[in-house]
């Protein structure tokens, strides 16, 4: 089966009008990315809400609920990197929603009956979600500085932190695509919308594991979200950081991608079976 789909992928690209297959595939990727960006233009309010929501979480925990929580240093310095990572994790939800919406519309049949590069639909999704997340990050970092986040780092360290966050988001993206392709039903969206909360908060994003029962602390430290949050703390303010966590924050999302990226691709090309 996999050999058949590979053959048809290259064939699909070659077929176009005899042009360079790589150029045609890139053109399809760009067309599908433009489609997602055009959606933003049609729904500016939804995009704005998506960007503002994580800021609300940050403010909520910074002023309303949080405070102290057994942190060595300023809680804001601990909280901001945590909520940045949390924002990346919550991106899973918007990916699942968007892919499910597409799958349940007839438009996916038209895409699949056209001579376009296989998987361009998924590339468009990835590009749009990564852009949205980058925008979210920029706004969140701005909000973080506004409420007193202090970073003691080099430009390289800062960019490294942003890179780790986006890498984590990229892993979440492909988990989201895979989940949506496997379930393909709007009911899944509800389940994911509920489940991202406990899974997101079962991490060190908001509170240190030291403030939790031992068993819970162990679970929390295994959460990939915690590893990214810790590494970002390490690379920025140092509060709550643990040296050596940067590699964990690189390898963990890569491991997730190694599993879910091929699974999602196979699922997508095999939709017809």
């Amino acid at each position: 089966m996999s050999t058949v789909s590979t053959a048809s992928t290259t064939d699909a690209v070659r077929e176009g009008d005899g042009g360079n297959s790589v150029v045609l595939a890139l053109s399809d990727f760009w067309t599908m990315t433009r489609r997602e960006l055009a959606h933003w233009g049609r729904q500016p309010v939804q995009v704005a809400v998506g960007v503002v929501f994580p800021v609300m979480i940050l403010l909520m925990f910074g002023y309303l609920i949080g405070g102290g929580r057994d942190v060595d240093g300023d809680y804001i310095d601990y909280l901001v990197p945590g909520t940045l990572a949390l924002t990346m994790a919550f991106g899973l939800e918007s990916t699942v929603i968007a892919v499910t919406r597409d799958l349940n519309k007839g438009v996916i049949d038209r895409f699949r009956s056209m001579p376009m590069a296989n998987g361009a639909v998924l590339v468009g999704r990835s590009a749009a979600d990564m852009l949205q997340s980058a925008l979210s990050l920029a706004v969140m970092i701005g909000a973080g500085y506004a409420i007193g986040w202090r970073t003691h780092t080099t430009a390289g360290g800062f960019l490294g932190a942003v890179g780790l966050l986006l890498l984590f988001r990229f892993a979440m993206l492909w988990i989201g695509i895979h989940l949506a392709l496997v379930a393909g039903k709007p009911e899944l969206v509800q389940a994911v919308q509920i489940l991202v909360w406990p899974v997101g908060f079962l991490s060190n994003a908001i509170a240190t594991p030291r403030s939790m029962p031992d068993w819970l602390g162990t679970v929390v430290q295994w959460n990939p979200l915690s590893r990214t949050a810790t590494a970002v703390r390490d690379l920025t303010s140092g509060v709550g950081g643990e040296p050596g966590h940067v590699w964990a924050a690189v390898l963990c999302p890569l491991a997730l991608l190694a599993v879910f990226f091929p699974l999602a691709l196979r699922r997508f090309t095999g939709l017809s079976h």
Partner: peptide, 19 residues
């Protein structure tokens, strides 16, 4: 892929991007 370049499909449900 050759077939896809030579056909048009009007499915039972509108195959359009509604947004």
């Amino acid at each position: 892929a050759r077939v896809r370049g030579r056909i048009g499909l009007l499915g039972q449900h509108a195959a359009l991007d509604e947004e």
